[in-house]
Each structure stands twice: as structure tokens, then as C-alpha cells.
Design a binder for these strands. Structure first.
Lengths: 339, 339
DNA sequence: CTGTTAGCGCGTTCAA
DNA sequence: TTGAACGCGCTAACAG
């Protein structure tokens, strides 16, 4: 015996069956209508009315269970509090929405265990695809172990030749930036950055080394995972007799702490050590001196990554693996010594 | 007749039933085990082994359908490409994860229609709760129409006294900042900002007006929704004879474009118009001059918002509505004229 | 403590 | 074209 619950009706969601009853048709007819299949004129009208009256919304959860697709993708990245990632996230979310998909966002702080935990979450939610900025140490097998058969696209990172990836040409970009500094005639060009375990950072270091070696100079690296150590090391270098003649900073994080170190050490801004940094964040042009930077084509990268992912989701299983790598743009301002 | 699909087994997820069969128990026993309920010792061992061997993961979709809870909350905000929101998002995601919940992130660009669309998405996914930075023009009824009975907490915005909200004391903060500028003896203090339709911006304008009026001065507002217009108006003001004596900038966006305008107009940095801005972004201390700002307690705000939301989700229906408003912190640097 | 049974809301047969 | 019946994977209720 059913209880009559007129009040609960507000909270309780109407189902296809409710709509069907109210429109005097079968449940499947409603389902057909919802998916745009042919339905008798009259029926269509009554169904539409019923949907409106009852305030019906299809239950995506039930759809997922039935259809095996969750219409949801996962985005897994280190953090969102950084120009490059926040812009990328923004674009991806919009693009996914345009395709009619929802996004679950998860951040792993470059910690492998957290990443694995997140992938498990995505598996439990049966996400249809994953955009992954891999944490250092991630191996293809670890990911496949958790998400067998789920389309994965690597973003700003590289996992294996077996999966699509979208990247900046990190090595080339770093080389070009370094060459630019060399062209100014600086000596003792130093490379500053955090987390050398991270793929893109490693590549940038390689590009830097390429250029410096080609000029028969010695690479000088200052890398540290946490910023306190970074500042300490950099501060020592700046105060030393062999102070760096110019700096290549590998991330906006590193740039931030490099400039902060200058302040701490008391380097006057007009005698600032020449510098080129990665990522063109909003305030790059407003810092003193205005920063010369490598700009990443975030928008393009995000769009490519998403379309690659959707291609896989839509089932082009056999299609060739894509490794898209885009060039960075050297945005000249004053910090490198130009103008 | 079933087809034998040994290959598909890799992709096909095992179910409770598979585990049950493999462990020689009933499906519900497996379910009980999974939820930590009492199970016979031997059975437990066999189930655990079966889970491991088969690589079983509970299907969260099916759980949702069954239990009516999706273990998912929605975060709906204007954008993520801004210090305050990206930091808040980060904290919220972590906090939600700690509670064992997933997050669906949606951005509405301060556009009401997009917000409504997003709320519909969350309804379709049967999100258990929503953290909302309301788009201008949002009315309580519009939200309740889409999400009747779903817990909603307003963040950095105010919707109605009927729902919990977590906010900066915007009005107070703006007043304090303005009073600080007044204490330096500046005249013609001008308030610069975008989107006066946005709740928090309106409040800040009110606080500014309070302080200026109390000092028997005339409020001077430069507000514009898009940055080109903002720069144009501000540029004109700066060039005019009655150039602003100091500026209160209502968002980091506004601060960015204010400084850019100074550059465009050719105001030398050492004769910069005194300025206080909202939000302490990473580079605030590195701009020339270092920026005096109002810092929002993002972390606290995010935590409060989430715990309020979970309180509702866990069912404290009747509990009193909370309107948490936290003070901002005036971080003194040089741009206001101090030091 | 356990297994069996039923149903969450939907889409997909299949016979009418 | 349509409606009735089944099952997606899980858990709550029930009888053992």
C-alpha cells in the first residue's frame, strides 16, 4: 500500500513513468521523445506539457547506469592556482560543456598517490575519459591498472607513446629563450626552477642545457622543490662574487620567488639581473622591470586536448596516436635587457 | 545465449555479483562487507581476495541511483582564472575530498543564463549540494525552481536570508581601505571597478561611499563591465586637470587594468597615484610600487562554506541559517603612500 | 549472520 | 508507432 505524500512531491523528482502516466502514453514513448525520435504528434504535445507541468528532468545517474556512459570527463592536474592551469581548466570546462559533457575536477599537488586516488574516484564514477597532467613518477601501467580501456589524454606531460598528448615544445622554447639571453652577450646564464621531477620542467632544463652547451658555456642550475630552499640557494648565488649574469626561470612560480629574492637581497630594480620566465601571467607586464616571457598557447592546447579526448570517447579506437606539440611565443619586454 | 567474451573482460567491470560468485557468498554479503558491516571472518577473507583478484571497484553510479545520494557536490562560480576563486576552488576541492565527496566544477562568467544551465546540469546529476557564487540578477526563486530541496550555500554573494552564506565583510573592508587613504590626506579619492551588478562589488562601493561621505567629500566612481571602457574612462580621468588623488580598486582585475592604464598614459612609476586594491595576489608585492591590498581570508571562507554545506547535506534541515561574514585584512605596502 | 528478492530510473528489446 | 517487460549494479528489507 502506497502512502500518499503530497508534500514530499516537491522534493521527489518525477520520473519518465510519471510523465508517461500524465501524458497517457507508455514510458518508452517518453524516452523516445526525449531523445528526439519520432513520436505521434498528439503524444508529443501531451508529453511536452506533462514535462513542463511536472518539472521533469531526466536523471543522468540512471542514464549512466543504463547506457554505460556517464557523460562526464575527469580533469586531473597538479593545482588550479596558477595562470596556466587555471586558464586551461577554464577553457576545457567550457569546451566540454559545449559538447554536452560535465567535468569532474581533481587536483593532485604533484603527488603520485593523490593522483592514483583521483583516478580511482573517476573509475568509481565511470568517467568516460580523462585529461591528465601526470604527477611525476606516473607510469602508464599504473594508470591503465586503474582505468583499463578508458580514454586518457596527457596534457602538459608525457606518459607513453601509446596515448595522445598535448604539449608545449618545452625544450625548443627553453632553448630559444636561452639563446636570446646569449645574444645579449650575458655570461653565467643560470636556470632557476622547481620540481625537476616534473616532465615539462625536465624538458625545459634540457633545452636550456642545449643552448648553453652549444655556446660552450657551463650550465648552472638552481632547482628546488620548495620555495624556501629555492630562495635560499638563489640568494646565495646572487650575493656571491660569481653572481648570475642572467636568469631563465622555468615557471611563474619560480619567477615569483626569483623576484622576491631580488627584493630580499636588496638588488635595486634598475640593476635587476636580466631574466626570462615561463608563462605570460596577467601582471607580467606590470612588474618592474616588465617581464620577457615565453607564452604558452593555452587556448589552443586546451582545445586540442579536448578534441583528442572526444575523438577517443566517440570510439575511434584504432585511430593513430597523436602527439601534438605547439611552439611557445617569446614575448619581448624589458626584463631580458631589450629596449 | 551469452557470448563468451574473454577479451572484453578487460574492459568490462566486475560487479558485486561477480565478486560474490567468486567468493562463494551472496551479493548482499559483499555489499555489507564493502560498507564495513559485520561479516563472517572466513567470508570476509574470501571477499577481499576476490575483490583484489578481479580488480573490483564499486560503481558509484549504481550506488547513487540506489541510494539517492550522488556523493557529489557542485561548485558554480564566475570563473576560476582569478586568484581569489582559484584559491577558493582549490581549498574546497581538497576539503570535499577529505569528506569523501567529488566536485563538479562549473563556471558561469557572471552570466545568469549560464548559471541556470549549470544548475540544471547539477540537477540532472542529482548533486547533493551546491556551492554558489551567484551571478548578478539571480533570485532565490530561480534557483529553488531548478533545485528544490537541494542544499545551497552562497559564497562571496548573497541570495536571500533563507540560505547560508559566507562572505567577506565587503562594505567594512572597503570603508577601512578608504579611510586609510583619507588618513594620508589625499583628496578626490576615486573608486575603480568592474561589474557593479555583482553583489560583492556593490557592497564595496557602498563602503567606499560611506567613508568618503563621512569625510564630506564627493564619491567619484569609475565602473565599467569591460576593461576597454574601464581603461578609457580611467585614462581620461588621469589626464584631466582633476586627476584622482588616490584610487580604491575593487578587484584584482580592476587593479590590473588601472596599473596598465598608468603605463599607457605614461604616469611615471615613482609618481604613481596612490592605490589600494582588493585581493592579495602573488605578485602584489612585486609590482612597482608594491601594492597595499585588502586580503580576503580565502582559506577560512572556503572551509566555512563547505562545512555549512555538509551540515545541510547531512540533514540538519531545521538548523538555523548561518550568515558568516569575515573581516578583510589591510596589508600595508607602499602603493598607498606608506613607508 | 546470510542469501534471496525487489526496485532505484532509465533505455532497449520485442511483440502487438 | 507503441507499451510491457527486462536488466544496468547496487543496497534495503526480509526470511532463513
Amino acid at each position: 500500500m502506497k502512502k500518499a505524500e503530497p508534500l514530499a512531491a516537491v522534493t521527489k523528482h518525477p520520473t519518465v513513468r510519471d510523465v508517461a502516466k500524465s501524458a497517457n502514453v507508455g514510458a518508452s514513448t517518453v524516452s523516445r521523445f526525449l531523445r528526439g525520435l519520432t513520436v505521434r504528434r498528439q503524444a508529443a504535445g501531451r508529453i511536452q506539457a506533462a514535462i513542463r507541468d511536472l518539472g521533469y528532468t531526466p536523471n543522468e545517474t540512471a542514464r549512466s547506469l543504463r547506457g554505460g556512459q556517464s557523460r562526464t570527463i575527469g580533469i586531473v592536474l597538479p593545482k588550479v592556482s596558477n595562470t596556466f592551469f587555471s586558464a586551461a581548466t577554464q577553457m576545457m570546462e567550457e569546451e566540454a560543456r559545449r559538447h554536452g559533457w560535465s567535468v569532474i575536477l581533481l587536483t593532485h599537488q604533484d603527488r603520485m598517490e593523490q593522483q592514483q586516488e583521483h583516478l580511482l574516484t573517476l573509475r568509481r564514477f565511470r568517467a568516460d575519459g580523462v585529461l591528465l597532467v601526470a604527477a611525476p613518477g606516473s607510469k602508464m601501467e599504473d594508470i591503465r591498472a586503474i582505468l583499463p580501456g578508458v580514454p586518457v589524454v596527457a596534457f602538459d606531460s608525457f606518459l607513453s607513446p601509446e596515448i595522445d598528448s598535448v604539449l608545449l615544445r618545452n625544450r625548443e622554447a627553453a632553448r630559444i629563450a636561452t639563446e636570446h639571453l646569449l645574444s645579449h652577450g650575458y655570461e653565467r646564464i643560470t636556470c632557476v626552477g622547481g620540481k625537476p621531477e616534473v616532465y615539462s620542467i625536465r624538458e625545459r632544463i634540457a633545452g636550456y642545457t642545449d643552448a648553453v652547451s652549444a655556446a660552450h658555456a657551463r650550465p648552472e642550475l638552481i632547482v628546488a622543490a620548495d620555495y624556501e630552499q629555492l630562495r635560499y640557494m638563489l640568494g646565495a648565488a646572487v650575493r656571491s662574487k660569481k653572481r648570475p649574469g642572467a636568469i631563465l626561470s622555468l615557471s611563474d612560480f619560480a619567477t615569483l620567488h626569483t623576484l622576491t629574492t631580488f627584493d630580499e637581497v636588496g638588488v635595486p630594480r634598475d640593476q635587476c639581473i636580466p631574466l626570462i620566465g615561463f608563462d605570460d601571467f596577467p601582471y607580467a607586464a606590470l612588474v618592474d622591470p616588465p617581464l620577457t616571457v615565453i607564452r604558452q598557447p593555452v587556448e589552443k592546447m586546451a582545445r586540442y586536448a579536448l578534441s583528442a579526448l572526444f575523438r577517443r570517447i566517440k570510439g575511434d579506437e584504432q585511430e593513430e596516436i597523436q602527439e601534438i606539440s605547439l611552439p611557445g611565443e617569446l614575448v619581448l619586454r624589458r626584463s631580458c635587457g631589450c629596449a
